[in-house]
Each structure stands twice: as C-alpha cells, then as structure tokens.
C-alpha cells in the first residue's frame, strides 16, 4: 500500500488540491447565493418569494450529478465553454446553495416576527432590522446545520470524477486502474477525504454543544 502512495504521490496531491479548491470556491459562492435566496424568500415582495421558492425547489430535487452533467455537456455546446472542474464547481455551488437557503430561511423564521416588529417600531428600516437584528441571531442558530452542509459539500465534490475534474476521486480511479490495486487505492483516498471532513464534523459537533449551553 505504501508503494501506491509513493509512486503516485503527485497524482494524489493534485487530486487533493483540486478537491480543496473546488470545495472552497463552492463553499464561498453557495453561502452568498444561499443567504441571498433565503432573504428573498422571507422578504415581503411576493415576486421574490416565488422566484426563491422555484430556485430552491429545482436545485434541491434534482440529483447533483444531473445538474453537473447539464453544465458539462449542454452549456458548453450552446452558451460558454466550461471545463470539467468549472462545470462541477458551478453545479456543486448551485446545488449546495439551495440547501443553505433552506437552512438559513429556517433560522430566520425561528427568530420570530416580534423581533422584526420591535426593530421596525424603533425606527429601523426593513433592511436595517434584517441586517443588525435578525441575521446575526439567525446565523448563530444555523451554524451547526451549515457545518453539516459543508461536510456534504466536500463529499459531493467527488462528482467531479464523472466530468474529468481532476479531483481526488478522479485521480483515485486512474491510479486504481493503472496499478490494479483497486481497494488499496480507495482506502488511501478515503483517508484523504477524512483528513478534510472529520475535523470539520467534530468541530461542528463541538460548536453545536457550545451553542446549546
């Protein structure tokens, strides 16, 4: 097993780096998009609510792999050229943002109408009340479930293997079928994933306990 690592160290590192890169980009943008659509869904304008509802419903109920394939095979033919890495990262971002939107919306709703009314009656605008009163409290509540979404995001980045995205899973397949050491290679790759996901999981559990006190 040790030989597989030393002989393919570069390939593993490339995969590891691309998985981290894809996850980080998707994390940042899905957080922005997710919070945006959550705000749109709780805001007064009916139009925005409908748009947000449709967006969330679509990306929550279609498999990630199908979304990624659409960005990889259809979009480049008609709209703009996308590499496997780009298509995968975009798909992952949109998919995850829908889950984040749901989580954040639930957080905002749990704060309660009273807070908003109180802030408004003290002369704050809707935006100010949202920005300074509601969101800070909501974010505190949603941090643990958000953490779970991030762990899922790292795991889900493995769909890049389907579109030649050079992530860990893609490299694993290539190494497995050139060394013929299938299981050993996947065990090593599993360890690489655990390096990323386990600390995140345990930290989130720790945070959850701390916030619950």
């Amino acid at each position: 097993m040790w030989q597989i690592i030393t002989n393919n160290w570069g390939a593993f590192l490339t995969g590891f780096w691309n998985t981290i890169l894809c996850s980080t980009i998707a994390l940042v943008f899905s957080l922005i998009l997710g919070v945006f659509f959550a705000l749109l869904e709780v805001a007064p304008p009916k139009f925005g609510r409908v748009i947000a509802k449709i967006y969330i419903a679509i990306f929550r109920n279609i498999p990630l792999l199908v979304i990624v394939m659409i960005f990889y095979l259809i979009v480049p033919r008609y709209i703009v050229k996308l590499s496997g890495f780009q298509a995968g990262t975009i798909g992952l971002t949109l998919y995850t943002s829908a889950f984040i939107a749901e989580t954040v919306r639930a957080g905002i709703n749990s704060i309660g109408e009273g807070q908003m009314e109180g802030a408004r009656s003290n002369g704050m605008t809707y935006v100010q009340a949202m920005r300074y009163i509601i969101l800070p409290q909501a974010m505190k509540i949603v941090i643990p479930p958000l953490g779970n979404q991030f762990v899922n995001l790292v795991k889900n980045s493995s769909v890049l293997a389907f579109v030649a995205g050079f992530d860990l899973m893609y490299q694993a397949q290539l190494i497995a079928f050139s060394t013929f050491q299938t299981i050993d290679t996947y065990i090593i790759v599993g360890l690489f994933y655990l390096i990323l996901t386990l600390p995140l999981s345990y930290y989130m559990r720790h945070l959850e306990k701390k916030l619950a006190k």
Binding site: Y72, I74, R77, F162
Partner: peptide
Amino acid sequence: VLQYDDYGQAMSALKANQ
C-alpha cells in the same frame, strides 16, 4: 488527456468541445 467512464460520455464530451 481527459478521461471518462465510458464511450458514450467521452463522445458527448467531444461534442461539447471539451
């Protein structure tokens, strides 16, 4: 070199100008 799981996917990728 970009590698796919089967020829259907590889050919679809060629058509998508990958």
